[in-house]
Simulated assay, not measured.
Amino acid sequence: MTAALLEVMDLAKRFPVKTPQGKGLLHAVDGVSFRIEAGETVGLVGESGCGKSTLVRLLTRTLAVSDGQIRFLGADLGLIAPELMPSHKTRREVQMVFQDAHDSLNPRYTAFDTIAEPLRLLAGIKDAAELERQVEEIARLTGLPGELLSRFPHQLSGGQKARVGIARAAVLRPRLLVLDEPTAALDVSVQVVILQLLAGLKRELGMSFLFVSHDLNVVRLLCDRVLVMYLGRVVESGPAAEVFANPRHPYTRALIASIPGSGRDAGAHLLPGEPQSPIQVSGAAAATRCHFHGRCPHGAADCESSAPALREVGVAREAACHFTGSLPAF
């Protein structure tokens, strides 16, 4: 197997918390492993609180790793302290587009200054003519009219601010672009335009994407592969078309059945019960049961006593379920 652009191995992040029973650890990301190949778009989905945002913060090195490795182009990013990452050479290769374009822009910077800042700080470009050339080029690629470059964020529409955020992340031509719900705060009509822009930009610059989203239809259309997270763990992964056509984990089935217009009977895949707590109290034995036990409509005694590992269920497909081979037709 050739080396991946990004390889995540047994990645974990635990936060110390206080509970009525004493001190504990919240397992926000719990042994996550996956790969992103050069030129690939990988979708990351799961309900709120499943660990998506924490995983993104670990990958972009704004949060320290508890355990595991993040290998990017063969080097372990986990060894770079978060406070050193902003000026580290790898920052040029891993950039992020934030969920709220407005809050991520400096209100005192024009669009030009916002896009030019990474060039000044990370590429060391000081020449005014070269800065102008590169900013104008990426503005063209992101569909941002030149006359808007002198405007401040409050003078731009939501879609224009989204384009500025994308241009800022793409101006350095990174190998990996992490997109955290990049269209969530936009009107539906604007979302379509931004998604088309991202697809074109990926083709033009040859980047890889990690696309985090609650919109499963967008993930299905935009992504090559999909990772499904539940309570800090990846419970299913595989080619997007195959996962959406025939999900092999009960949680993935419930997510896909909930998509409006999916043609699935959402009522038949409703999840009973409440999610387990991701907190382990100090001194207590680690839970061995499946994280999905108690909500799974197919749960059995094996799920209570043994947590299923992520295992192959087809070509380039994995699922963490004891009964993935015996689930009824979807």
Rank of each mutant, 00 (worst) to 15 (best):
R140V: 00
R108W: 15
L201F: 02
P260C: 09
L310R: 00
R173M: 02
V193N: 14
R92C: 08
D30L: 06
L131N: 06
E93H: 15
Q21D: 09
L25M: 14
A4H: 13
E136I: 05
Q155P: 06
I125R: 01
T288W: 04
P328Q: 11
R220A: 14
R61F: 13
V171L: 05
A268R: 13
E318I: 00
H291G: 10
H298R: 13
V8A: 09
G46S: 01
A329K: 15
L105S: 08
P272W: 04
G325M: 03
S157K: 11
A128C: 04
P260D: 04
A129F: 05
G39Y: 01
Q191V: 11
L5P: 02
V56D: 03
V212A: 06
A301V: 10
E137N: 11
M9P: 03
V17L: 03
P275I: 02
Q99P: 03
L195G: 08
I138G: 00
Y109D: 12
Y109H: 15
V228R: 10
S66E: 13
P153S: 06
A320P: 10
Q276M: 06
H27G: 08
L201A: 07
F112V: 07
S104H: 01
M9F: 05
V190C: 07
N217R: 14
L156Y: 13
F292N: 13
T19Y: 02
K126D: 13
A169C: 03
P86F: 11
